[in-house]
Amino acid sequence: MPGKLRLVLPHGLLLAATAFLYWAATRIAANTGAGRIGPDAWPKAILVFMGALCAWEIVRRLAMRPRGAAQPSPAGGGEGADAPPALQWGKLAAGVGLVVGYVIVVPWVGFFVATAVFLAAFPWFGGMRRPVLTTVLGLAGSLALVVVFMRVAYISLPLGAGPFQALSLALLKLIGVS
């Protein structure tokens, strides 16, 4: 990606989102009565300010570079901002994938199974390549959390569907939750 584009990409995306949201705000419908400001006034005011800030930041960043000033880091702060550490994209993708995957599967497989897999897989992808330890950690950790949340704190957590629901119910019966 060209340097200039990368430099202004976050603020460019935010500016585009601001424009879209302003369009959405124009469609807010309400019967406010004559002379009164409506429910769209507050979000519109914020969006105008936010759009102006994004535009200002884009212009500032584009204008700064030819003068040979220190190149702002992706951390965006510009002056004085420290460069962020290098990203390990594989680990990051795995982390995001696991978080999103957990959210998707937990309604189907239930809290116990989803959490056991997550607690085993997350450290594994995080660099802890000890299969026995991570597997034990997943199962024991998930069981401990089920006991803490469902038996001690009385929080109702997803049981899952089909055979997973049967498994969750059997587990709850085992730990004494009716």
Binding site: Y102, F118, F122, G126, M128, L145, I155, L157
Partner: peptide, 22 residues
């Protein structure tokens, strides 16, 4: 290990988010 602590942090976050409104 930080990886293990972080895994539990994520699960706690999910439980916290879910339990507020089920």
């Amino acid at each position: 290990p930080e990886a293990i602590v972080s895994a539990f942090v994520v699960v706690f976050c999910f439980v916290g988010a879910f339990a507020a409104r089920n």
